[in-house]
């Protein structure tokens, strides 16, 4: 008798549990899709980036680069990053064709040899230029790259937030999961917590100084990444954003890599 009750109870929680999980997944995906919808249609942009790397002893080092990005319909963005500092890599350029589901295509241009090398885009979790940002943190954030779960509502600095969990689909990702705080008013990411493959908190990324471009697209001026396991941090500052400039497909090719200065 008691065993039968327990069995019913178990199956009931099972049913409700699944339904609950489905609802949370749907709501998480809805939020991610709405954030993506609001950020679609910018066409292209140029910007300048500065990275300030700091180790746990406070020693600093600087990276300067320029980026240009082209929105591609029904696929991931095309992005080119040109390095200015440190000086030994000046003129080095990285071209990425990101894709929604398949692996990204990546080429690296080495100016000393005038050589374009195809590189493996499997290196998602590796540090970008020795910083606390991994390649995947800076890659174009396609909805399809994660599965989602709504966690809770929260208040951060007086602003109402959605907190969603997203799990990378790609097995080569360095993360088991990420917790993302998205503000309810504008659907902008405000904070991301990155959990490593062992599910320990690895890094926290904070977005500040949001500016709206073309009356629609929000971009954070500062992105501050704190690594909790090593004590290192990187402050990424975006400057001179220019939207809808004269950028075409032909500005994202092998020849254009060699022209990048």
């Amino acid at each position: 008798m008691f065993a039968r009750q327990l069995l019913i109870l178990c199956s009931l929680t099972g049913v409700f549990g699944t339904a609950w999980a489905d609802a949370a997944a749907d709501r998480g995906l809805d939020i991610a899709q709405e954030a993506d919808r609001r950020d679609t249609g910018y066409q292209n942009f140029k910007a300048e980036l500065t990275m300030l790397l700091r180790n746990k002893h406070g020693k600093e080092s600087l990276r300067n680069m320029r980026t240009r990005s082209l929105e591609v319909e029904d696929d991931g963005d095309k992005t080119m990053i040109i390095f200015d500092q440190p000086r030994d890599v000046k003129g080095t350029a990285l071209l990425t064709f990101s894709h929604k589901t398949e692996a990204d295509d990546q080429w690296l241009y080495l100016p000393a040899l005038k050589r374009v090398k195809r590189i493996s885009s499997r290196n998602k979790s590796g540090p970008f230029m020795g910083s606390e940002f991994a390649y995947e943190d800076l890659a174009s954030q396609e909805v399809e790259k994660y599965t989602y779960r709504y966690v809770k509502d929260d208040i951060l600095n007086g602003q109402a937030m959605f907190v969603i969990e997203r799990d990378p689909v790609d097995e080569n990702s360095g993360y088991k999961r990420q917790l993302v705080w998205i503000d309810q008013a504008e659907y902008r990411p405000i904070r991301i917590e990155y959990y490593d493959r062992k599910n320990s908190l690895l890094k926290t990324l904070g977005f500040t100084g949001y500016i709206q471009y073309l009356d629609r697209y929000w971009r954070a001026r500062e992105m501050y990444m704190q690594n909790h396991q090593t004590g290192k941090s990187t402050l990424l500052t975006w400057e001179n954003y220019q939207f809808r400039v004269d950028l075409k497909d032909s500005d994202f090719t092998n020849n254009s890599l060699k022209r990048a200065k």
């Binding site: 692996a103 590189i119 493996s120 885009s121 499997r122």
Partner: peptide, 9 residues
């Protein structure tokens, strides 16, 4: 000819 397939070049 160069190709990138998974971790292979």
């Amino acid at each position: 000819l160069q190709g990138a397939v998974g971790g292979w070049l």
